[in-house]
Design a protein around this nucleic acid. Structure first.
Lengths: 159, 159
DNA sequence: TATTGTTATACTCTATAACTATA
DNA sequence: TATAGTTATAGAGTATAACAATA
């Protein structure tokens, strides 16, 4: 029974992502991570952010949400926050030794997971990326005002 | 700067879905809907569920979560719940007149949105579906115990 | 005044476990 | 005992608005 003349592309995309994401979250949970933490860690390791605002934008969340996550990470002693000497408004966020180790574990798990996905897709990878980019562009078409997270590093950072 | 030898397939998939989903949620919100409500409405309209348990499985959520959503829908007078005469454990869920009208509005919005996505992808639709299916299968490979939601109606129902 | 980040609060979606009603 | 569904509770992730500290 179908309610539309087209197949359910948005829904298929949603469900595929749900399945993939749940598997990914399970994988990360096994090494003490989560998707949100993984994205934040990657952005931290890349060291391409000047402020928490930048970092939040890179991760694709608000500043308040980032603070929320950083609080948890600091509580777990995985990162430290120290005020910048020259501009005390700015927090400098750094991995602790333990945090760096956690990052390495999560990186290994995420890399292995990604490799599995890439292998599954086979040779059509560029075609898939092109299709996904067209989907995102089409969805955003009505709403240029809303910035798409990580647009500039799209595809360039580990999973 | 890249931390993996492969491009970030899982992440690209995630971000694409985020962008598409956010646009979809905005579209639905304009007609008083949400993704969860839309999925539930579709399952209701299809009338292929015997119990709430079935319905929850079709939508891909737990019974408790479904109850949560049905409470909200009943409060908004979009659905009614009546006990089955022959087995009073069973709730029969039906659209109210208003609920049916809401469904029609949401259907129209979702169909238009889906058409936009399909148009954007162009002629590669089957290739894209195949790639997405391979991704879901690969992600699930480690975790056969976890049932993927809507496996049987995959692709067969409106967005 | 503008910027950086935090706090307070709340919302949505989700789940688990204990429970009630019915069979 | 088993099944259908609800309630109570909680947790993760997210956001907005008001705020404090600093520039």
């Amino acid at each position: 029974m179908s309610f539309t003349e087209h197949r359910a592309l948005g829904r298929t995309l949603w469900e595929t992502t749900q399945v993939v994401n749940r598997a990914f979250e399970r994988t990360l949970a096994e090494v003490g991570g989560s998707r949100a933490v993984w994205f934040i860690f990657l952005a931290l390791a890349a060291q391409e952010h000047a402020t928490q605002r930048d970092l939040a934008a890179t991760v694709g969340i608000t500043e308040a949400t980032l603070t929320h996550h950083l609080n948890a990470l600091e509580l777990r002693a995985l990162v430290t926050r120290t005020r910048d000497e020259r501009d005390r408004r700015i927090q400098r966020i750094e991995f602790t030794e333990e945090g760096r180790a956690a990052f390495e574990r999560i990186l290994a798990a995420a890399t292995a997971f990604n490799r599995r996905l890439v292998t599954a897709v086979g040779g059509d990878l560029d075609t898939l990326y092109a299709a996904l980019d067209r989907l995102a562009a089409a969805a955003d078409a009505d709403h240029e005002a809303v910035p798409s997270p990580l647009a500039e590093t799209h595809h360039d950072i580990g999973l």
